[in-house]
Write a protein that binds this DNA or RNA. Structure first.
Lengths: 217, 217
DNA sequence: CCATCCTTAGCACGAAGGAGTGACGCACCC
DNA sequence: GGGTGCGTCACTCCTTCGTGCTAAGGATGG
């Protein structure tokens, strides 16, 4: 039985293909909230507004191309599953897409049952320990080494970590400085290095990245 | 065999008890980074700087008292396991502490082996699916309904959710406005209500709370 | 119909945040 | 010895954020 998949974006340069696939997707019972995008920027806007669970991505997308699009999509929506729309012979684009995290491919002629089959395969629920027994109520320290991964490891210094923790608790730079017996300017310096390391533009994104990567909890 | 527990804070009003317990904790092989606190504010400072895995908390803490302290600690460090230090007869304080998330109690005379036993019990690793098989590499949509919990559910409106997602991606209010075809001022309004609902002081904390509660990923 | 909520939007204001730069001490390592 | 990275602090400059207030339209539901 199919797992519910909420949030699908069909991204294809050709309106006819796009609409046909969207209709096919809407016909899948376990799918909900199907949207369409005609180019990369539209897809990214969708992703920023409401990260989709599944994206069907045109292998011959106009503009930046599917590879760059995939890369940008990854930055915005890490957990989104991407399936590339390509013809059988299109090995090159496909390989590069896979290395960037695409989870498979479909031909643009895919039917509803094709989509359902792919989704059932990809979204097959991994076995998860039941949280019913009291023991599992435990917060569980370090259950898995690192749920994230993918990119290279980021190592924070002690100070950077402490500053990041403070940020995640809604403390101002000044307050963090008081917590650590440091001046606010010093916190700003650490914050700046922290942002560079994490690739964050501000503290909100830094916290998001930090939690997603398991640097803080 | 004991799971490694890194970050222990012994918080007790009496220096002698505190030090003795800290020494006992340091003697446990699987424990590392043992710190002490003489009152609530010291404990909270420790927690803000580096969230501990385990806190031994005096049931008769001076000042705000252990209940209020526990409540504040919960806000700063959600995953920290708290064990209350109380005498056998102290049912009242104990009950209230348990409702606030304390995981058990010890007498102030606890020895190293007591601590080790408690830790082994509490930090017993829950069964976790091995991430070695390729299937488990799946991002896994909605594997568990909500890993967090505890407090009451927070319901965000569509707009609030979208704004929160934007924040977590490091977008400015102005940029979020462009993503949603809204004015920056409108984003501010949504942000304000978002902060209220989440109990956040700024966007960084809002993102932290949002992710921890599973509102966003 | 009225109450309530969501949504949108504006304005003003002080408080933070973030970029950039420079500087000094310290530890480590080649 | 010199390079590198970390930690600390200061200073400027500009941008952004967060808050308070007000207001109005639409949807919903009793």
């Amino acid at each position: 039985m199919g797992v519910g998949v909420s949030g699908i974006v069909v991204c294809h340069g050709v309106a006819a293909v796009r609409e046909r696939l969207a209709a096919a997707a809407s016909a899948v019972p376990s799918f909900s909230s199907v949207r369409t995008a005609g180019d990369a920027s539209e897809l990214l806007r969708h992703a920023r507004v409401a990260p989709p669970a599944l994206v069907l991505l045109d292998a011959h997308l106009p503009g930046p191309g599917p590879i760059e699009t995939l890369r940008q999509l990854r930055q915005v929506s890490q957990r989104t599953v991407v399936v590339v729309l390509a013809e059988k012979g299109d090995e090159v684009a496909l390989d590069r897409a896979i290395t960037l995290g695409a989870r498979g491919y479909l031909t643009p002629e895919a039917t509803s049952s094709d989509l359902a089959a792919v989704a059932a395969h990809i979204f097959a629920a991994p076995v998860v320990p039941s949280p019913t027994v009291p023991v599992a109520h435990s917060p569980g320290l370090r259950t898995a080494p690192s749920p994230a991964g993918g990119d290279r490891e980021i190592e924070l210094t002690k100070r950077e970590y402490e500053v990041l923790v403070g940020m995640s608790n809604g403390r101002s730079n000044n307050q963090i400085g008081q917590d650590l017996f440091l001046s606010e300017d010093t916190i700003k310096t650490h914050a700046q290095r922290l942002f560079r390391k994490l690739g964050a533009r501000d503290r909100a994104q830094a916290v998001a990245i930090g939690i997603r990567r398991g640097l803080i909890s």
